[in-house]
């Protein structure tokens, strides 16, 4: 996607967020009473500033000669990381077993990140050893020393 198109999309999203924010700011009791220093006062100013700045940025983008593209050369790795992380956080917050799941999470990440270097028994063992060592380190520091309970 080109920088220009992506900027338009982001600016539209920001204007929509700003519109919802502005409506909620108006609903706040202070703003409804026309009180200049109520809880809605500052948000009102901010939403107007956002609309104005998004408008300026929209025009700047329109007249810009920038033809740069947004490059995502590692789309698959990015998607895989986001998916695995979301699964990890959802699973840990639901089922617990934090350190066991941490080991699995790290092992999966090391494996997918180093997959392109070629997989053999030595690399798999090294990945498992690193994942285990780090999980143990986190357990000692956070569970035993800092008594953090996940």
């Amino acid at each position: 996607m080109s920088q220009k198109k992506a900027t338009y999309v982001v600016l539209i999203v920001l204007i929509l967020i700003g519109a919802r924010y502005w409506m909620q700011a108006n609903d706040l009791s202070g703003a409804a009473n026309q009180d200049t220093i109520g809880p809605g006062y500052f948000p009102n100013v901010l939403s107007i500033a956002l609309f104005v700045l998004c408008g300026i940025s929209f025009l700047q983008t329109l007249y810009s000669k920038d033809e740069e593209k947004i490059e995502l050369p590692s789309k698959k790795l990015l998607a895989a990381t986001i998916m695995v992380t979301v699964l990890f956080v959802a699973s840990v917050s639901t089922f617990g077993f934090f350190y066991l799941q941490t080991f699995l999470f790290l092992l999966v990440l090391f494996t997918i990140y180093r997959f392109s270097t070629g997989m053999n028994v030595r690399i798999v063992a090294a990945n498992a050893a690193m994942a285990f060592g780090l999980s143990l380190f986190f357990y000692v520091v956070f569970d035993l020393v800092m008594t953090v309970r996940f």
Partner: peptide
């Protein structure tokens, strides 16, 4: 490839 999982995990733990 080694640093990223470590930093990601530390970030998650830090926030929690």
């Amino acid at each position: 490839s080694i640093l990223v999982p470590v930093i990601l995990m530390l970030s998650i733990i830090g926030v929690y």
